[in-house]
């Protein structure tokens, strides 16, 4: 067992703060975290909490990897993750027990997602509000938005071509992607669609990404 200060747990105001040694390599942090949570696993049993990583700048992929470790080793239910700048808000409502890990979960976001806010979800995402320009959703499953999509939405981010995106209005300033396939909206398309409410869904068929009206779903 590694006994060092690579990973330190602290109770914070709104959940658990995990302090990571800035000089430690990511590999070593993973090992240390695994050892720590294995040791303390029962302590977290069944709790629902938010997690904040501090001390070391992490990429989104690295945060997800650390969350995977937490999921594998504990019964903890992580509801919210924040990096040390507090700027990236990763809502990872992943259910903890390993046997459920493969079953995609749906995260419901109440309210709009504003510029700079991010949801990364192993599963599907439902937003009860708008996804504004500058906001981003990355989901391995489907993304449904009860509002306007202006920001970046990636569905089927793990490569699932059955994933879809649907919204009351789709006006992306950049693009949408499903299983890595992208669809861009030209300025003319956006202008033509402005002020029209035409619920649409975006899906992949025969390797092509298709945008259609929800009204046409049979």
């Amino acid at each position: 067992m590694i006994k060092d200060n690579t990973v330190i747990f602290k109770g914070g105001k709104s959940g658990i703060v995990i302090l990571l040694a800035e000089d430690a390599g990511f590999e070593r942090i993973c090992q240390a975290l695994r050892a720590k949570v294995r040791e303390a696993g029962k302590f977290f049993a069944g709790t629902q909490t938010s997690i904040t990583f501090k001390g070391k700048q992490l990429s989104e992929a690295q945060i997800l990897e650390l969350l995977d470790i937490m999921n594998e080793e504990t019964d903890i239910s992580v509801t919210f993750v924040e990096d040390l700048t507090g700027q990236m808000q990763v809502a990872a409502a992943m259910q903890p027990a390993p046997q459920f890990f493969d079953a995609p979960d749906t995260y419901f976001h109440k309210g709009s997602l504003r510029s700079g806010q991010t949801i990364i979800q192993n599963g599907s995402v439902v937003v009860m509000g708008d996804v504004n320009a500058g906001a981003e959703i990355v989901a391995t499953g489907n993304v449904a938005v009860f509002g306007v999509v202006r920001g970046l939405v990636h569905a089927g981010s793990g490569g699932d071509e059955n994933a879809f995106i649907s919204a009351i209005s789709i006006l992306p300033n950049q693009f949408l992607s499903i299983a890595g396939k992208k669809v861009h909206y030209t300025k003319e398309m956006l202008a033509a669609k402005k002020n029209k409410i035409e619920p649409e869904y975006v899906f992949v068929q025969d390797g092509f990404i298709i945008v259609d009206l929800i009204a046409n779903i049979k």
Binding site: G86, Q87, Q89, R114, S115, G116, Q117, N132, A133, G134
Partner: peptide, 13 residues
């Protein structure tokens, strides 16, 4: 407006 949107998000959080 884009920056204001970011600010509103940060104020709410």
């Amino acid at each position: 407006v884009r920056d204001a949107d970011r600010i509103v998000g940060l104020l709410k959080s």
